[in-house]
Nucleic acid binder design. Structure first.
Lengths: 351, 351
DNA sequence: ATCACTTCTGGGAGCGCTCCCACTCTACTC
DNA sequence: GAGTAGAGTGGGAGCGCTCCCAGAAGTGAT
């Protein structure tokens, strides 16, 4: 009782004396252990004790101190969402916030916290693994990891559960959540085929991006299923930017002036293509139909509005959390877990 | 040495035995206090001791355990970014991720972590204050708080520093970071005046939103500065949605068919207005010039591309963190701190 | 040589929890 | 009636750090 004022509450950062578990115990007339059991929902507590503790908690406005809990329990009650900073720009924006919204919604049902980590330099990425493991998170969600990024493997080596959004390659060892890129692309192209389009071109992404190759694969499958021959001249490579979309479209028009439809692997590239088509005097959709991918807001504001493949982005965020939580609970490696969510074609004026 | 295996490292969550400060001390041949001093950059350490500790840290790959630090020091080394969930949708999206990017960038220079908290129900908001104060954050960033929201005051009462983005009213007691809405709107309207537009209308936001009234005020100031009379018939109220923009534009065309310019308080509303103008057969910008606000990606994809007022959103995020850190350091209330950042007119084809 | 400083330093105490051991009670069984 | 389970409980020990208090060692003036 003597030297109790070493650090006054005020000196320690305001928020005057929040009650501790010990105070709750005293008030409820039970021991610390019992309070802890009640707080953590153990069933080894008598109804009577539970009621007393619950009343004391309510009266005192007790909220457990997370730092103390994390320290004592060795778990963090938090997960990190790691995003390479450049991607927050590149991805036509709502993708990012949709993911965040889904993650946050799903996490709200546990009481884990969400830590956001943008990586803006290779150096930061290197340090990341060490810091993540410094015990403030018990799992990691990784957005748009590129092929060859060692991070997932480093985390695995440290025993930190991780979930990717999007596979890095066809066979992915780390748990992931992805959308059905191939199926979505196939549906888009089938739609064009259904509308009697004869020469369907595609603007694809960099071939070292797995998403891009999936969407290209879907394009090919649709053609094949319709019994059509594939014309390599109808495939142009973009880079998921508007400018890239423009260049690819120019290239296509030059190579195959007679084309009457374009499937672009992203809305932003489709928007670029639209500009080039207009400049070239091709009416959309009358002469050339255009379909994008992602169903970003951009799709609703182009002229004409873009038919596009919608990804359930928010749901992907939710699924990532679910997969991660499984991985955290399962002490085993939890490898091979994954979810692939379906896409949906949203038909608008452009095709 | 005896009962050391109460909980094996593995049982406690993988990430096998990270070194502790004590082990660093042992290895460096110094006491715990000295290691702590080195880690925290105290100058009360001899060069020799510092070097020994630094070597030991490097050799062991030591990273301090944040939970332990938070518990012992009573501070959290983290700040929360609180965002009402509906807003993540409403705000034409990059706003959200730009803020996040700025916040994250500025935070990276301290070693504080970023906690993201979406609020999706009034109930969650009620509980928020209690949980925030449960000691895992030492400051709070609040995005788009509405007039009448008690949260800022609750936090203030608990002594938790907070910073708003955007004022709730002309006089704002809580520290905030805002952009110069009035000045931006004024510049936009002056630009229209400079282009010889005679009847300049405006689509404003709900009058209970302070941003909206600022932008309206800028519109008025510009007219007044040019010695023009204000015509109430040229002001229509929108709600920051595209549909609202459409309705407002229809209203304006009906009331003042002769208008030759429109300043919309947001790009999304401007996009709606553009649609109505096209449907009405008014050429943009030849017959009617249109200017938006925010410079969102939408502005670049409308046809014609939208002249708009750019806000330094990322910089706002950075500034919020700086203001917050000041508030955390200053033990005093730190009231009245604020930053207002300038806007910039981006001229495109629409006006 | 003595005293007063000033720098450095080790390590005890304690942050608020969880874990678990030991213990008390109350039931049942034989 | 003794013996054996449980169910429920209190509280010690310890998580890895920071804070601070003594004290050691070094420096200069007297």
């Amino acid at each position: 009782m003597a030297v109790r004022d070493r650090r006054t509450p005020v000196a320690r950062g305001g928020r005057g004396g929040r009650p501790t578990l010990e105070q709750v115990a005293a008030r409820a007339g039970v021991g610390r252990g019992t309070v802890s059991r009640v707080i953590n929902g153990s069933d080894q507590v008598s109804e009577q004790a539970r009621a007393a503790v619950e009343r004391a908690v309510a009266e005192l406005g007790y909220v457990p101190n997370r730092a103390a809990r994390a320290l004592a329990a060795g778990s963090a009650d938090a997960v990190a969402l790691v995003i390479p900073e450049p991607e927050t720009r590149l991805f036509s924006e709502p993708y990012f916030s949709d993911i965040v919204r889904g993650v946050s919604a799903e996490l709200a049902e546990t009481d884990k916290q969400l830590l956001l980590t943008l990586i803006r330099s290779p150096r930061e990425r290197e340090r990341l693994a060490a810091y993540l493991s410094a015990d403030r998170v018990d799992g990691v969600l990784l957005v748009s990891v590129h092929e060859g990024d060692p991070l997932p493997e480093m985390l695995a080596a440290m025993g930190l559960p991780a979930v990717l959004n999007g596979r890095r390659a066809a066979s992915e060892a780390v748990p992931y959540v992805d959308s059905d890129n191939t199926g979505g692309a196939q549906a888009a192209v089938e739609h064009l085929i259904g509308r009697e389009r004869g020469a369907i071109a595609t603007i694809t992404g960099p071939s070292d991006m797995y998403v891009a190759s999936c969407r290209l694969a879907g394009y090919r499958q649709a053609l094949k299923a319709a019994g059509r021959e594939e014309d390599p001249g109808l495939v142009a490579v973009g880079d998921f930017t508007e400018e890239g979309g423009r260049r690819a479209m120019e290239e296509l028009l030059e190579r195959r002036p007679a084309l009457d439809a374009v499937f672009a692997a992203s809305d932003v590239m489709a928007a670029g293509a639209l500009q080039v088509l207009r400049a070239a005097g091709r009416a959309v959709p009358d002469e050339v139909a255009v379909v994008g991918f992602e169903d970003s807001p951009v799709a609703r504001h182009t002229d004409p509005a873009l038919t596009s493949v919608r990804q359930p982005t928010e749901e992907m965020g939710r699924a990532m959390v679910r997969v991660l939580l499984e991985g955290i609970d399962a002490s085993d490696g939890a490898e091979g877990r994954h979810v692939v969510l379906p896409t949906e074609l949203v038909v608008r004026a452009s095709g």
